[in-house]
Computed example of a mutant assay.
Amino acid sequence: MAYFFVAVSSRKNLELCVKYALAGFPNSINGVWTFSEIQEGDFISFLYGAKAHNLYRVEGKEAIKDAKNLPPWDTMTSKSSRKTYYFPFRLYLTPIRKLNESLVRAEFAYVAENLLLRGGYRKTHFQADQTTLQSASQLGELYDETADRLDLNEYEIFMPSFTESKGKVSPPEIFRFIEVILQATIRQHLSDENNLADFLYQIGVETLDTSKLEVLGEKALAEGHIDILIKEAIPIGLARKIIIEVKTGLAKLQDISQLSMYLDEMGNECLAGVLIARDFSRKILQEAKRQRISTFEYKVDIIENGVPVTFNELKEDFQLIRVT
């Protein structure tokens, strides 16, 4: 189970989310990314006004067809792009704890640091670590109110899908397969203990207990951000970690340089740096070996023919192959 902070755009939208125990995400790549990444059984808190609002468990997910005029949220039109956004991607929530806590608390340092280094809320969601979830589980008080039921007339649902073909993109049903979707696929792939154990074996880090590790999404640093961070959920004495850089296309020399810089910033407790890409040239593999960076090619054969596929189909077909 993972823990996410979901950014809300206005006080009114926050109140509607709380009233109906419902999270909604827009008809955009960020919206479908969030919807795909957060799974049933995960936990979320709403993020608004630099505060964490309540703790919920995700009980269900639906993508609703023709949701433009469906309650509870109003549509929004971007002043810059003039695109109209609505909320087809929805999470059904069970309230666990009532809280209204500032992010300046030490308990939320992991998320607050990400926000500060990234310069604000420009993402729809932020993944927190297990330490943050444990802290949130002790703040505030148990939720003892009953959420209102949002009654909708008959509606149809769909499963969003992804394609590499620009000509087949048709939001909110079909989106481009881009880097954040690949990152989410890899994170969930490695969140399986068997997959993670095999991955650690291949990079020569076999001393870590996979049951005590967590696989997290983007982690901001002073000079950029790590795509995927594997770390000990409850560090004792040591805070060992592994960092992963993800590229959808051909790996480049600048990817090696960037990952090497992140390794230096993370220090001696960072046991390995890994670059995952679709393909590697011999020159890149030689440079990665020189800098002690492990290299993997990803394979998702199902998407290469251009036919749109769902996120679950991506995960089922996904493979990581060690290359040297």
Rank of each mutant, 00 (worst) to 15 (best):
E154M: 12
Y155V: 05
E164T: 09
N153A: 13
G167D: 05
I174S: 06
I186H: 08
F175G: 01
T185G: 06
S170A: 12
F162G: 03
E154C: 11
F158V: 00
T163M: 15
E154V: 06
V169D: 04
P172F: 00
I186D: 07
L182V: 02
T185R: 01
A184H: 02
A184D: 04
F177V: 02
S170N: 12
S161V: 00
E179Y: 10
S165E: 08
P171Y: 00
G167Q: 06
Q183P: 02
T163C: 15
F177R: 06
R176F: 05
P171M: 04
L182D: 03
L152D: 05
I178W: 13
P172N: 03
F158I: 00
E179H: 06
N153T: 05
P172M: 03
S165P: 10
F158E: 03
V180K: 15
F175V: 01
N153L: 13
G167W: 08
P171I: 02
L182S: 05
E156P: 12
Q183W: 07
L152Q: 08
E156F: 12
F177P: 03
Q183F: 07
E173A: 08
F158L: 02
F162K: 13
S170W: 10
I174Y: 08
I157P: 14
Y155N: 09
E179T: 07
N153R: 14
Y155E: 04
E173I: 02
F177I: 02
F175M: 01
Y155F: 14
Q183S: 12
Y155L: 11
F175P: 01
